[in-house]
Write a protein that binds this DNA or RNA. Structure first.
Length: 926
RNA sequence: GCCUCGGUGGUGAAAUGGUAUACACGAGGGACUUAAAAUCCCUUGGACUCACGUCCGUGCGGGUUCAAGUCCCGCCCGAGGUACCA
């Protein structure tokens, strides 16, 4: 008996995967007579836990589209690569001494093996790795372009620094409209020309798009590094519990704020989901209002605030400064200084996140100083409050408790006055934040509507020279330097005067140097300071020691795929002009305001430089939902090495700890596995419940960090790649998040075997060349219609159902006609490419199925003679009536009313109204 | 806190404002078999009812509409993001 006639997925999948690889079936050409289509996935970070089941979700979807587009005759670019710089490899290196390059390479190899098993149609000739010097040479090159550029607001685009210098030479800042540091002084051409080299460099730094500037960060002195808010818990580092403070530090940064307006505007032109666009809009946070400067009483100092509600200026009851504000120390009176110092100390230890999240915890302190109200001349107290963030606006607010809820909470807590300036809702209990109503108790604004009052107030403020109408963005410049080892070196060196210079193109790449340890130095310098003494520019000048963040390499990788091995540029102009932009980008929504803003920013910059033809990276974007993991939590008694079973945890003070979900079965933990897993559990005492240790489960992001990773390997081994592909699609809508489970997998596995049996039975191909029946053609064409619609709206889960229905019906009809079964294979092949290639081959084709034209829907094959009309009374369906298709409203109405069973529901009365939707429904209102 | 998304049978879920629960899983029953596997058939939202059938039902409370899972308002719960995880 020939073995090959069974559906043996192991052999079939191996065979076709190697066929595609050797035939280069999916290699894309940079020139073609066919239309182009670029389908991109967000490339993975190669984690030590391996590719998890969430990764393929998006990859399968994009692969279906890629294969579908090939069937439709497109020249498809569908590449894959690795975002291979990042923190986890570095932390692993710190723990084990293993070089991150080595771990990363191992992880990539594992990922590749896992990806290969799933049968993706990637063009591997174009693979990219961000940690590869051939790649990051161009990341560094783009950095240098940003360093050498400024943003001209007059032309509304980035320009080479030379045009700025020219302007300064001839006019100084006169007539210059540029995005620059807030505190940049205006200068004359004479002043500019009088600057020495260092002064010129410092002045230009205020304009560069990649610049060295000051930014607030969470500094952990003990670890010698800046931490993410995520890594700070209760003012101490999550790792090690060392103190962390908010600190203003010199940092390489990106002037993304220059593009705030265009990043907003560009959203109008791209086909991304409304929710994602909304997220980006909120992140950019455009708000229009006014700046306003207060004079400090008995002092030469002034405090500038930004407000979106200048209309409420007569409702000010205090001014609040962020604890980090420059003037806090200066303004504080002697009596208040102890209290203010203590408060600032407390506040700087809290992360920005905690400060915003814990609104119930109202805190602040009076500085003892007062400012003068610009219109009433009244004394306004100045407070320090940590709900005011240093990084937003000017780090100071005018507080109007009557019409801002945060101010209201603060005023209530400290007994400050609450002044109502808009008629209507009483503000004693809660602020009235509505931007509508008539002004009151507001002098010259009285009687005006809020909107008119805003512009009137701005005019008054401008007339007094105290401020001006201003657009403010919540978006902040992006800090770009990291005190880390495993990232791209920033291609900058400092000369004897401390002036920063970029490397020349022919000096790139600046290769990441070897170091003895992956930790900061004893002096708190970044790891690159450990590089050999000769790691210097021209042997004498220090390089920049910080490295680029994870998002640097991912901000332009889509361009590298267009021409991945180019050594003369990031990609050839021809290639970039041919592929233009990504047609379809699929990736997780967790990147909504990170990567997806940065990549748009770099695209707009490269577009401004004339280097690429499109200023948006991707025309269409789909956010796949996250496949979540089910984490296992055990409960450790605080201050001990005892773990108690979950059911007993209420009797103790405990902390939940994540343990590897693979050691648990139905809520029961394998204690021995746990002991062996990590040293700190070796001597743990376990308090059992019914003889076992129980855990609880929590659904959350699948991540190595939570020990809840499930890889696709086991599914591939047990059921095969085609089953995995169909199953992941069958789980639910692509865009929806869902926890991973394998409960329904046998359903799709059964489906594939039923499909196989349509073609092969008892080791025989049973397909005949007979003419198919009308019923068989109807089944086929119903499916063609549905699948085409489904792919076009990215509804892959319903496609799988459609395949099942179609195969069930054909099985029922005992259909074995080639004219039906061949198109069916093409229809399914994007989803389940291996089994369809094999059956295609068994039907006698020598060529791959992958370029076969996609079946075309023929409406004449599915016409119905009659329609089953649901008849409802007041919206409740009572019966159905079959009527000829094509009947008019009137005909339907007449016929329905003539029916006896309809009359029964009417009870002799006449309907008040009848709604007839031909082809759909009849509703009778009684 | 703020921003975004989600909540429908025992489970994953389907449903251009138009018959709620398609397609699967699971469960129960049956056929075939010495048996098992495989395959096939039937039942499967809830309550009441011998039955015909009736009523209820898409997180909760309101609203718009001839008609609401779908649109609007107010809540509750879960997930993701919150600027140095990727």
């Amino acid at each position: 008996m020939p073995c090959c006639m069974e559906y043996n997925f192991r052999e079939i999948e191996k065979k076709w995967q190697s066929f595609w690889a050797t035939q280069q079936t999916f290699a894309a050409e940079n020139k073609s007579n066919q239309p182009k289509y670029y389908v991109l996935d967000m490339f993975p970070y190669p984690s030590g836990a391996g590719l998890h089941v969430g990764h393929p979700l998006g990859y399968i979807a994009s692969d279906i589209v890629a294969r579908y587009k090939r069937h439709q005759g497109f020249n498809v670019l569908h590449p894959m690569g690795y975002d291979s710089f990042g923190l986890p490899a570095e932390q692993y290196a710190i723990q084990t001494g293993q070089h991150p390059a080595v771990t990363t390479e191992e992880n990539i190899n594992r990922y590749r093996e896992q990806l290969d098993k799933i049968g993706f149609s990637f063009d591997w000739n174009r693979e990219v790795r961000t940690s590869n010097p051939d790649y990051y040479k161009w990341t560094q090159w783009i950095f240098i372009q940003l360093f050498d550029s400024w943003y001209n607001k007059t032309t509304d685009k980035a320009e080479k620094l030379t045009t700025l210098i020219q302007h300064l030479e001839t006019h100084g800042t006169e007539g210059l409209s540029a995005v620059c540091d807030e505190d940049t002084p205006a200068i004359s051409a004479a002043v500019w020309r009088g600057f020495n080299e260092k002064e010129k460099a410092d002045y230009l730094m205020r304009y560069r798009l990649a610049y060295l500037g000051e930014a607030y960060v969470n500094w952990c002195a003990a670890l010698g590094t800046v931490l993410a808010n995520d890594e700070v818990k209760d003012g101490v580092s999550e790792r090690g519990g060392h103190p962390v403070e908010r600190k203003l530090m010199k940092q390489w940064s990106m002037r993304i704020t220059a593009y705030a307006g265009r990043l907003l505007e560009g959203l109008e032109r791209i086909d991304w989901s409304d929710s994602l666009k909304e997220s980006q809009r909120n992140w950019i946070g455009k708000s229009e209002g006014s700046s306003l400067t207060f004079t400090v009483k008995n002092s030469a100092h002034t405090i500038e605030v930004f407000t979106t509600r200048p209309d409420t200026i007569f409702g000010i009851s205090f001014v609040a400064l962020a604890p980090e504000h420059d003037l806090v120390k200066t303004l504080t009176t002697t009596e208040q200084s102890a209290a203010v110092d203590a408060y600032v100390q407390y506040a700087t230890n809290r992360s920005e996140r905690e400060r915003q999240a814990e609104v119930e915890k109202v805190s602040g302190v009076f500085t003892g100083a007062y400012v003068t109200h610009p219109f009433t001349g009244a004394d306004i107290p100045v407070w320090v409050a940590d709900y005011v963030l240093a990084g937003y606006g000017t780090g100071a607010v005018m507080a109007v408790p009557g019409h801002d809820s945060r101010d209201h909470r603060f005023a209530t807590h400290f007994g400050l006055p609450i002044i109502q300036v808009i008629e209507g809702a009483d503000v004693a209990e809660a602020a009235n934040e509505a931007k509508e109503g008539v002004m009151m108790a507001s002098d010259f604004l009285n009687g005006l509507e809020v909107k008119a009052s805003i512009s009137r107030a701005i005019e008054a403020i401008e007339a007094k020279g105290l401020g001006y109408g201003k657009t403010n963005y919540r978006l902040r410049d992006a800090v770009f330097g990291r005190q880390r080892y495993w990232g791209e070196p920033i291609p900058i060196y400092y000369d004897a005067q401390g002036i920063a210079h970029a490397l020349r193109e022919d000096e790139l790449p600046l290769v990441l140097p070897e170091v003895d340890k992956f930790l900061p130095t004893e002096d708190g310098e970044p790891p690159l300071a450990r590089a050999a003494a000769n790691w210097k520019y021209k042997g004498q000048f220090d390089y920049e020691w910080t490295t680029m963040p994870g998002w640097a390499g991912s901000s332009w990788y889509f361009l590298r795929y267009m021409d991945a091995s180019n050594t003369n540029g990031f990609a050839a102009t021809d290639a970039v002009n041919y592929w233009k932009q990504v047609d379809l980008y699929i990736g997780g929504s967790e990147h909504a305001t990170g990567h997806l803003l940065y990549v748009r920013f770099w695209s707009k910059f490269l577009f401004d430089m004339g280097l690429i033809p499109a200023d948006e990276p991707a025309q269409k974007l789909i956010n796949q939902g996250m496949i979540q993991g089910t984490s296992a939590l055990v409960y450790r008694v605080n201050g001990s090495n005892t773990i108690v079973s979950a059911g007993l945890r209420k009797q103790y003070e405990t902390t939940a700890i994540h343990v590897d979900v693979n050691f648990t079965d139905n809520g029961v933990v394998d204690v021995n596995a746990l002991r062996q897993w990590r040293d700190d559990f070796k001597d743990t005492e376990f308090v059992l419940e019914d003889g076992v240790l129980k855990c609880t489960h929590q659904v959350e992001k699948m991540s190595k960090r939570w020990y809840n990773v499930v890889t696709p390997d086991a599914i591939c081994d047990q059921y095969g790649a085609d089953t995995l592909r169909l199953y992941e699609m069958f789980l639910g809508p692509l865009e929806q998040s869902k926890p991973w489970n394998t409960n329904g997998i046998s359903g799709v596995s059964n489906f594939l075997r039923r499909l196989w049996r349509l073609y092969v039975q008892h080791d025989q191909v049973i397909v005949s060349n007979d003419e198919p029946s009308a019923a068989e053609l109807k089944t086929l064409h119903k499916a063609i219609k549905k699948i085409t619609e489904d792919i076009d709206r990215f509804s892959f889960n319903t496609s799988v159902s459609t395949f099942m229905i179609c195969v069930n019906e054909l099985t029922e009809l005992k259909c074995n006609k080639r004219a039906v079964l061949e198109p069916l294979l093409v229809l399914i092949s994007p989803y389940a490419p291996h089994i369809t290639e094999e059956l295609w081959h068994l039907l006698g084709h020598a060529e791959s199925i992958s370029r076969e034209p996609f079946p075309i829907f023929d409406p004449s094959k599915v016409t119905e003679d009659s329609v089953n009309y649901p008849v409802s009374f007041n919206g409740k369906t009572r019966l159905t009536i079959a009527l000829p298709a094509g009947w008019s409203k009137e005909e339907i109405e007449k016929e329905v009313l003539s029916r006896e069973d309809v009359q029964k529901y009417l009870n002799g009365g006449t309907p008040k109204k009848m709604i007839v939707v031909p082809g759909k429904i009849v509703n009778i209102v009684v």
